[in-house]
Design a protein around this nucleic acid. Structure first.
Lengths: 95, 95
DNA sequence: ATAATTTGGTTTATAATATAAACTAGTTTA
DNA sequence: TAAACTAGTTTATATTATAAACCAAATTAT
């Protein structure tokens, strides 16, 4: 019967899940791209990227594109595996 | 490409999603059963049932089993359709 | 009989989270 | 050189989730 095992709270958040979803399908994405795709505010994204990074789910690479700062994000192996675990657990809720 | 349309915030909550998941597969469930299955506290469940009920996603029927109060929950048509919409949107994030 | 415990919850206070507003630092444009 | 824009970060606030405290009635133990 239904197994309602807990859902990783770090991933069970619309914005963070959206970011992870983008990163998993694209392998890497720029801050501005994430902003466009998610429609979230820069501040919100900044905070959520920090959380994902602190958890080791993503890597944040800071560089410059010309003279402007450029923040690039990549999902890590840890992140991919956490995502897979989350999806597996979630499917028990929705299938 | 990825469509990150918003997820119904009422359903994008572990406990409420679990409750809805149970109700959809069982058609109806008692408060105590929901408590056992989810492992959540009675207070938390009470609050979340209220929210789902206020939204019209579930119906709460209060009666007595012998001399003890009995709270029974049933998912509504509105609730089922909201759940289906949520699942459809969610799949864009996780597939 | 009555005191303590249990059942089946609800209400309310608090902790956690999400989100946006305000800010910083530098760049481009007028 | 001042105004406006880019690319973010920090911080304050609103929202949400959660549990602790509570209530009423029923059951059990003394």
């Amino acid at each position: 019967m239904k197994d309602l095992t807990p859902l990783d709270p770090l991933l069970h958040s619309q914005l963070r899940l959206g970011i992870m979803s983008l990163l998993i399908s694209l392998e890497s994405a720029e801050f501005t791209f994430i902003k466009e795709k998610t429609g979230a505010t820069a501040g919100n994204i900044s905070v959520q990227l920090d959380k994902l990074s602190t958890a080791g789910y993503i890597e944040i690479i800071k560089s410059f594109k010309g003279k402007k700062p450029l923040t690039t994000c990549k999902v890590t192996k840890v992140g991919i595996s956490a995502f897979e675990t989350y999806v597996k657990a979630l499917k028990n809720y929705i299938e």
